[in-house]
Write a protein that binds this DNA or RNA. Structure first.
Length: 492
RNA sequence: GGUUCCGUGGCCGAGCGGCUAGGCACUGGUCUGCAAAACCAGCUACAGCGGUUCGAAUCCGCUCGGAACCUCCA
């Protein structure tokens, strides 16, 4: 029996702005689509937060026993700065600046993105489709939309007729906008524009002579509109209707709004059951953004090679830091907050390690494992509330740290505790042991030898020598800890 | 200007009508040769003003402060 049958899951649906009970369309299968990056430059930490959030969602759904098909696209066709702009798209511009082919740009930053995602211990999506790999499908969808009467062709470009769509549907329902307000907020339609209405958006754009990325189509040599790829690829791999669509908050309008319209206009159904939006990561109270330079790159975080941080932090520590906040809340990134998270992370992981050494004996403790376990699932079931989950994990930490080797749990409960804690720490939150790999057996032997020498010195009351061993180890980052069961050590 | 959202103890961050998360820091204690670690205890807050209610951090109104979106953005 799958866990999801025992534990309810509620998701805050951005579309309805309500927490709704999650019911998979075709359990145990779940389809999830997440908008991926445009690969024209290095991803920054803000981008990473969204993908780490949905990695956690993916992990928890899988943990519950769902078979998730997780689709996350790579946008490798350049978007114009806006529809009226006849200039270069971002990928072409970057290609010119770096004197590379557009596909070289795409390749370079896609690889970089994957490297960063791996460092953060995210699981690769089941399918990672690219926009340029689905031009044919995009042309098909444009034809459907035209045939259904929701788009018009003008001088080789195809525009989505927002006003007409809105008369029969509700354009703006996701972002809470009214079409009248949008119109009044838009500048006058300039004379050159081919659009009938300033709100209309291009789903196919005729290429200007300088445009590098271009494809043949029934309308012109050109390129697809930037909202189209997600509608096309989600439909292709997840069907006309699927369970979850995720992305960053900043994509709500216009990107996701247009996606909803395109799906409805081509297939006649609302594609997405549950819309989820991750909130922004801020730096000094302002959202990270490439254009303003208010960013922190993953590499800078890991190395500490930036004036914004006092030192480097392990990717898993940054992940833990993010998990301590709810995905739907804004989170501010700071050195101070990261330091606090790092200490908390260390305490958690040391307790997880100590748990392995505990042994069952009877049942004489207040710690109620089955109930604690239930609390963990309740927290996650409440819209993936990882901060509450973590607070429960620390209840277990307190028990473990306070426990004798014979810990007072029945063998059944001890196993349950181990399985549950490991599952949430590693499988669901996706944390890792930091510094794993740089701790060799030889190092362990050397430190163990030094500990033995120090113990002999202590037995002889040679405090000078024992303190020298301890302090000099501390300087190179090895902490000795004298406990009831002898001395152990930990690495910085 | 329009639309959304937020303002919680020294810091980060949950909670969203009653039972006052958690982490970090700090203080006292236990343990220890001393220290560190660990454990126990303490520090008990909800921007301001008014209202609704038996009861509000949580609902409503106003004021002040901050953020996101309205253009490409995770």
């Amino acid at each position: 029996m799958a866990l999801y049958e025992d534990y309810d899951l509620y998701i805050n649906n951005s579309l309805t702005r309500k927490k709704e009970k999650f019911e998979a369309l075709k359990a145990p299968n779940v389809g999830m689509y997440v908008c991926g990056p445009t690969v024209y430059s290095d991803v920054h930490l803000g981008n990473c937060r969204t993908f780490i959030t949905f990695d956690m969602v993916y992990r928890y759904l899988s943990h519950l026993g769902y078979k998730v098909r997780y689709v996350r696209n790579i946008t490798d066709a350049g978007h114009l700065e806006n529809d009226a702009d006849e200039g270069e798209d971002k990928i072409s511009k970057k290609a010119r600046l770096e004197a590379l082919e557009p596909m070289e740009i795409v390749q370079k930053y896609t690889l970089g993105f994957h490297e960063v995602m791996a460092k953060f211990n995210t699981i690769p999506p089941s399918i990672e489709p690219t926009a340029t790999g689905h031009i044919v499908e995009q042309i098909d969808m444009i034809e459907q939309i035209i045939n259904n009467g929701w788009a018009y062709v003008e001088n080789g470009s195809v525009y989505f007729d927002v006003e007409k769509y809105n008369a029969a549907n509700d354009y703006g329902k996701l972002s809470g906008r009214k079409i009248e307000e949008l119109i009044s907020g838009t500048r006058e339609l300039d004379a050159q524009s081919e659009k009938r209405n300033p709100l209309d958006f291009a789903i196919w754009k005729k290429a200007s002579p300088s445009h590098i990325q271009r494809w043949n189509s029934p309308w012109s040599v050109g390129f697809p509109g930037w909202h189209l790829e997600c509608s096309v690829m989600s439909t292709k791999y997840l069907g006309e209707q699927f369970d979850i669509h995720g992305g960053g908050m900043d994509l709500k309008f216009p990107h996701h709004e247009c996606e909803i319209a395109q799906n409805k206009a081509s297939n006649g159904v609302d594609a997405v059951r549950y819309w989820m939006h991750g909130n922004m990561l801020t730096l000094n109270g302002q959202r990270m953004s490439k254009s303003t330079g208010n960013t922190l790159l993953p590499g800078e975080l890991f190395s500490g090679d930036t004036d914004k941080l006092s030192k480097g932090y392990a990717p898993t520590v940054a992940r833990f830091f993010m998990m301590q906040a709810h995905y739907g809340s804004q989170l501010d990134f700071s050195d101070e907050a990261l330091q606090a998270a790092e200490k908390g992370y260390n305490r958690l992981m040391q307790a997880v390690a100590k748990l392995d050494t505990l042994e069952a004996n009877g049942a004489n403790t207040d710690f109620d494992v089955p109930n604690w376990r239930k609390d963990c699932y309740t927290a996650m079931g409440d819209d993936f509330n990882t901060p509450i989950l973590i607070s429960h994990l620390f209840e277990a930490v307190r028990f473990i740290n306070g426990a004798e080797k014979a810990c007072g749990l029945s063998s059944e409960n001890l196993v349950l505790l181990k399985n549950t804690l490991n599952a949430f720490v590693y499988d669901v939150l996706g944390l890792e042991k930091a510094g794993e790999g740089n701790q060799s057996d030889k190092l362990d032997e050397v430190v163990t030898m030094l500990i033995e020498m120090r113990n002999k010195a202590r037995a002889d009351k040679d405090w000078a020598l024992s303190d020298q061993i301890r302090d000099e180890l501390a300087t190179i980052g090895i902490q000795l800890k004298d406990g009831a069961d002898g001395t152990s050590y930990s690495l910085d």
